[in-house]
Amino acid sequence: MDYADEKLNRRKFLLTTTTIVGGAGVVATAVPFLSSMAPSEAAKAAGAPVEVDLTGVEPGKISTVEWRGKPVWILHRTDAMLAALGKHDALLADPASKIQQQPPYATNPARAIRPPFFVAIGICTHLGCVPVFRPEPGAPDLGADWPGGFYCPCHGSKFDLAGRVFKNVPAPRNLEVPAYTYLSDNRLLIGADKKAG
Rank of each mutant, 00 (worst) to 15 (best):
M1D: 13
M1Y: 15
D2A: 08
D5L: 07
D5Q: 15
K7G: 00
R10S: 06
R11I: 07
L14D: 00
L15H: 06
T17W: 09
T18P: 06
T19E: 02
V21W: 03
G22N: 05
G22Y: 03
G23K: 02
G23L: 10
V26T: 09
A28K: 05
A28L: 14
V31H: 03
P32Y: 00
P32E: 11
F33H: 13
L34A: 10
S35E: 14
S36L: 01
S36F: 03
A38G: 04
A42V: 13
A42C: 12
A42N: 09
K44T: 07
K44H: 01
A45W: 07
A46R: 07
A48E: 11
P49C: 10
V50M: 14
V50D: 08
V52A: 10
G56I: 10
E58Y: 15
E58C: 03
P59K: 07
G60W: 11
S63T: 13
T64N: 12
V65P: 01
G69Y: 07
K70A: 15
K70N: 11
P71F: 04
I74N: 07
I74W: 01
L75N: 05
L75P: 03
T78F: 08
T78P: 09
A80V: 02
A80P: 07
A80Q: 10
G86I: 05
H88T: 01
D89S: 10
L92H: 08
L92S: 14
D94Y: 08
A96I: 07
S97M: 02
Q100V: 12
Q102W: 01
P103W: 05
P104R: 03
Y105N: 06
A106R: 00
A106D: 03
T107I: 09
N108V: 01
P109S: 11
R111A: 15
A112M: 06
A112Q: 00
I113C: 11
P115H: 04
V119Y: 05
V119D: 02
I121M: 09
I121W: 00
I123S: 08
I123T: 12
T125G: 05
L127V: 15
V130I: 15
V132S: 14
F133S: 11
F133W: 11
R134D: 11
P135H: 09
P135S: 03
L142M: 06
L142I: 01
D145T: 11
P147H: 01
Y151I: 06
C154K: 04
F159H: 04
G163F: 02
G163Y: 05
R164F: 14
R164G: 12
V165T: 13
N168S: 15
N168R: 09
N168G: 05
V169K: 03
P170Y: 06
N174W: 12
L175N: 08
V177N: 09
A179Y: 06
T181Q: 15
Y182G: 12
L183H: 09
L183Q: 12
D185V: 05
D185N: 15
L189I: 11
L189H: 00
L189Y: 00
L189P: 07
I190Y: 01
G191A: 10
D193N: 15
K194Y: 11
K195M: 10
K195E: 12
G197M: 10
G197P: 03
G197Q: 10
